[in-house]
Amino acid sequence: MRYYRPATTAQAVAALASQPHTSRILVGGTDLLVAVRHRSAQPTLVVDIKGVRDLTAPISVDEQGITFGPTATMGDVIAHPTVREWFPALVEAAGLVGSVAIRNRASLIANSANGSPAADTSPPLVSFNASVTITSVSGERTSLLREFFLAPRRTLCEPGEMVTSLRVPRPSPGSSSAFERMTRRRGVDLATCSVGAVVDADGAMTVGLGALGPTTLLGGPVAPIDLTSQEQLERAVDALLAPATPIGDIRAGKAYRTAMARVLARRAVLRAAARRTDPDRLTGRSS
């Protein structure tokens, strides 16, 4: 394994292109170095892009949305006032990734762009209609995040390419969002399943679903309902969860995961809806 710390994006993508199938991008290392330890990744070249000078800034805000660069950490995401105001579900999800020390290093883009179906930040990002920019020696292309995920840990990002930015459009006025996650213990854990919900001003609902299919899935949009009607809510949850294909694995059986998807979807929708008028900021589930 070689370690390379390029100074420019051009150098970085050139390095990737030199060993497209065996090179890996290194940002926070919280995923890659675990894989290297278990030999599930055996890169011949690790390209550390933290020194790249022309990289997209970690977090930049404009009228239409927020652009995240590869070096934006979970800690940055959680602390940023505009992210907190616009994307409470993303902040809640980022706050559940690993421990404080992990969040100090882990990159938002890497968490999502690795394509793990259980990644905490992907459901909210998908529900926010986020898109990514992919760069290689042949140029740039963009993709909606929900189309970027192809299969577990397989994405549109081809060998030799890297994700250089993540764009999340500003949510429509009067909307809000919430993130819910199930784990096996209260402390740091991987998601058994998760749901990020966005409820618009008019009540239209969208969800991102984590660990409920081979990739992060988008559910909805579902038309506004009377949230006080248990029956309507259950029907809406049915519709939001339509794409889910939960399986049984080491973290949960299929029946439990299926049932939890409903609980989380219901809770996320209700919390997001309530947050529209009562911006309780980030009072997530007490876990």
């Binding site: 370690y3 290392g29 919280t30 170095l33 330890r37 421990s99």
Partner: peptide, 26 residues
């Protein structure tokens, strides 16, 4: 050695890091 236990925690540039998940080169 995979960022789950915190036994290797150090402070790098003012922030805690699991030193098992950071290359020395970094």
């Amino acid at each position: 050695a995979e960022g789950e236990c915190g036994a290797c925690t150090v402070i790098v540039d003012g922030a805690t890091v699991n030193s098992c998940l950071m290359l020395a080169a970094e």
